[in-house]
């Protein structure tokens, strides 16, 4: 069983006997010790998509999935092709299927991802918790701050924007924590 709070992109839960893939999950505190998870789900049998809300402590039946290591091979329009690193099989996913990690997926990335299979079908991909990306654009340091506490916006090669430390410059490699939407972790060593 999984609780509402544990739902994250890539989780598959069973509802009314059908497997549903969590494509997006947003956690919010709603009120006194109460929290909710808004999810975007896709029925893996029919392809039907819907939005559903759960209380953080709702109990849901999760589906045990196969997981394999995979890397991104190439991107063609909205189609993302991943390759199984052990048997070199190619699998395709639509942008929507990996909506939650899409901001950090870019051509040429070498991260070893976790490919999630339901009945031998690739349904989603999870990125490693920490990834390294290059800053494509950011303004110069405004205050000369070196503490890492002052933040400023920066853009990655695929256009994703995130807040980084003030001392980060164009071309710097940064570490990103991919959980909960992705956030700057520090300058890559």
């Amino acid at each position: 069983m999984k609780t509402g709070k544990e739902l994250k992109p890539g989780t598959v839960i069973k509802l009314e006997n059908d497997p549903w893939l969590v494509q997006k999950a947003e956690f919010t505190k709603s009120g006194r010790n109460s929290a909710i998870m808004k999810t975007k789900l896709k029925n893996l049998l029919t392809g039907y998509k819907t939005e559903i809300v759960y209380s953080a402590d709702d109990k849901l039946e999760d589906v045990i999935l196969d997981r394999k290591e995979a890397t991104l091979s190439f991107i063609s329009g909205d189609t993302y092709t991943f390759m199984d690193t052990t048997d070199y099989t190619m699998y395709e996913l639509n942008a929507e299927d990996i909506e939650a990690v899409l901001p950090f997926v870019e051509e040429g990335m070498t991260d070893v991802c976790e490919a999630i299979f339901f009945e031998d079908r690739l349904v989603s991909v999870e990125l490693p918790t920490t990834i390294v990306r290059t800053v494509d654009y950011t303004e110069g340091s405004a205050r000369g701050d070196t503490s890492g506490k002052v933040m400023k916006p920066a853009k990655l090669a695929n256009g994703t924007e995130l807040q980084v430390a003030d001392f980060i410059e164009i071309g710097d490699k940064i570490e990103i924590d991919t959980r909960e939407g992705g956030s700057y972790k520090g300058r890559a060593k």
Partner: peptide
């Protein structure tokens, strides 16, 4: 803001 995005949405329980 998030409230308007969640208002009226269903929550399907494991019991159906």
């Amino acid at each position: 803001d998030w409230v308007s995005g969640c208002h009226g949405l269903p929550s399907i329980q494991s019991s159906g």
